[in-house]
């Protein structure tokens, strides 16, 4: 593992490239891990239409991750490529949001996780599309269109299921309560985020919260769902401190490349 990804490295010494590398991992890893999570529905979704739609979202996210991690590898300049970053890092090297790695459980959790993530993702990409780094701005501009659709879709599902049958409402409310503690992390920046914002590479995480919150509150109100009063907010994903869920996900996602390095077909 490169020294750049060691969490023990003092952040104040990060070079401009190291800040960019870390920023790209954070964006790319969230897309990759959620993309893999969503792909787990392939062949198992409640209806054929949902199955195809979920697979499309997964493919969009994994496609975005390919671009972000490809650029990260290029910036790192250590001979790794996007595949090496995706399939040859251990859990501690991943920089995704904890929200992204949460298990699918039932369809309500999947849909709620997608909505909470999409609403943040759309805000983030709007900021990244204005990045001072044209490579970042270009990828963000492409991803924005895909994510605008993801958000449209997850909003419709949250409203339809929240304001649906007593069963669907109860499951959506339970999903919201379960996932809410993971909605603080996207907006808590650290020294790397501050350096990235200072350089104009990426938006300040805290600046994304008002837009996210307004959208989430409006949609949840329409969905007749109640925001949890309090929550013990959890974070750590963006600095490599993950839950058990990520290790299990990686065990499946990385199996082939770990067991048969450089296998092609």
């Amino acid at each position: 593992m490169s020294a750049l990804t060691e969490t023990t490295m003092p952040e104040t010494t990060l070079s401009a490239d190291a800040v960019l590398f870390e920023t790209l991992l954070r964006v790319g890893d969230s897309a990759l891990i959620l993309g893999h999570r969503v792909s787990e529905w392939c062949g198992h979704a409640p209806t054929l239409e949902e199955d195809i739609a979920q697979a499309n979202v997964a493919l969009d996210l994994i496609g975005q991750a390919t671009l972000w991690l490809g650029l990260a590898a290029e910036v790192e300049g250590a001979g790794r490529d996007a595949d090496a970053l995706a399939f040859r890092r251990d859990a501690g090297g991943f920089r995704n949001l904890l929200l992204a790695e949460q298990p699918n459980r039932d369809f309500a959790v999947t849909v709620m996780r997608q909505f909470l993530f999409d609403a943040w993702h759309a805000e983030l990409l709007a900021g990244l599309a204005a990045s001072t780094d044209p490579r970042v701005a270009e990828i963000a501009a492409k991803a924005r269109k895909e994510v605008a659709y993801h958000l449209d879709r997850s909003e419709t599902l949250v409203i339809g299921l929240g304001d649906g049958t007593p069963e669907s409402h109860a499951r959506m409310q339970a999903a919201l309560t379960r996932l809410w503690p993971f909605t603080g992390e996207p907006f808590r920046g650290d020294a790397t985020d501050a350096a990235a914002a200072e350089a104009g590479i990426a938006p300040d995480p805290a600046a994304l919260e008002p837009g996210w919150r307004a959208r989430v509150e409006a949609v949840l109100a329409e969905a007749t769902l109640t925001l949890p009063d309090t929550a013990r907010f959890r974070s750590g994903g963006r600095s490599g401190v993950h839950g058990e869920a990520l290790g299990l996900l990686l065990a499946e996602m990385q199996f082939l490349q770990r067991a048969y390095p450089d296998a092609t077909w």
Partner: peptide, 14 residues
Amino acid sequence: APSAEMAIQNARDV
């Protein structure tokens, strides 16, 4: 699809 809006979205995806 459960609604016209979802039918459009499903049609887009399918």
